[in-house]
């Protein structure tokens, strides 16, 4: 099988993720999937914007009452940095340096986990401090759905990285797993793209009023 073929850093092709036909198909298919995901998140954003601050009575907390800039800022920095670390991982993948790629991916996973921890803290905080829950108002439903969908994507991305790392720990790079690593990192960047809009539209604009 030439998919399992051994390479050296000198024979390793320039775009290992697109060298085989399978790789090319996966690469394109995944980009198309991201196109669909764009519309999926747009629908969620649209729903959130239509239902923002729509609460049954005046004693419910609104966006401007709840959101806190420092927390969002830390989360943003964590996710942005994890985007850079996964770029580093792909840089080493293209240079056929498996060990360094693994290291950077593990750092990425760590940052992702930290982000997730803050998100759980944040949700918990809103529920207990402001009684802002999934069922308390239309605003609550749409907020937790939008941000929660993003959080679920983070979980999937982390699970994907971990599965790939576990499966390939002792195998090194080949043309069969290189596209998989590449796509997982594309997915991770896309998660970051969505977060850029979440922190801008939900948090920053929510803070302005």
């Amino acid at each position: 099988m030439d998919a399992e073929q051994k390479f050296t850093s000198r024979t390793w092709p320039e775009s290992p993720e697109k060298t085989t036909l399978e790789g090319k198909n996966k690469f394109l298919g995944f980009w198309l999937f991201l196109g669909g995901e764009t519309v999926l998140f747009a629908s969620l954003f649209a729903t959130y914007l239509a239902l923002k601050d729509k609460v049954p009575s005046d004693d419910h907390a609104l966006a401007i009452d709840m959101f806190e800039l420092p927390l969002v800022f830390i989360m943003t920095m964590l996710l942005l940095t994890s985007s850079l670390t996964s770029v580093y991982a792909m840089y080493h993948m293209k240079n056929y340096n498996f060990q360094k790629m693994k290291t950077w991916l593990i750092i990425t996973v760590g940052l992702g986990l930290a982000f997730l921890g803050f998100e759980i803290y944040e949700f918990n905080h809103y529920v207990h401090e402001y009684h802002h829950t999934f069922t308390s108002s239309a605003f609550g439903s749409s907020f937790y759905t939008l941000v929660g969908f993003h959080g679920a994507h983070v979980v999937v991305g982390l699970g994907w990285f971990l599965l790939l790392l576990i499966r390939n720990t002792n195998r090194g790079l080949n043309l069969y797993n290189a596209p998989k690593f590449f796509l997982a990192s594309l997915y991770w960047h896309f998660i970051d793209v969505v977060w850029v809009f979440i922190f801008t539209v939900v948090y920053l604009m929510g803070m302005v009023g």
């Binding site: 980009w31 198309l32 991201l34 196109g35 669909g36 995901e37 764009t38 519309v39 998140f41 747009a42 629908s43 954003f45 649209a46 729903t47 914007l49 239509a50």
Partner: peptide, 18 residues
């Protein structure tokens, strides 16, 4: 092509809901 098409649909959807 497909990402921008998706972005266009996304834009129209959000515009509608606003």
């Amino acid at each position: 092509l497909f990402l921008y098409s998706g972005a266009l649909v996304a834009f129209i959807t959000i515009l509608t809901f606003l």
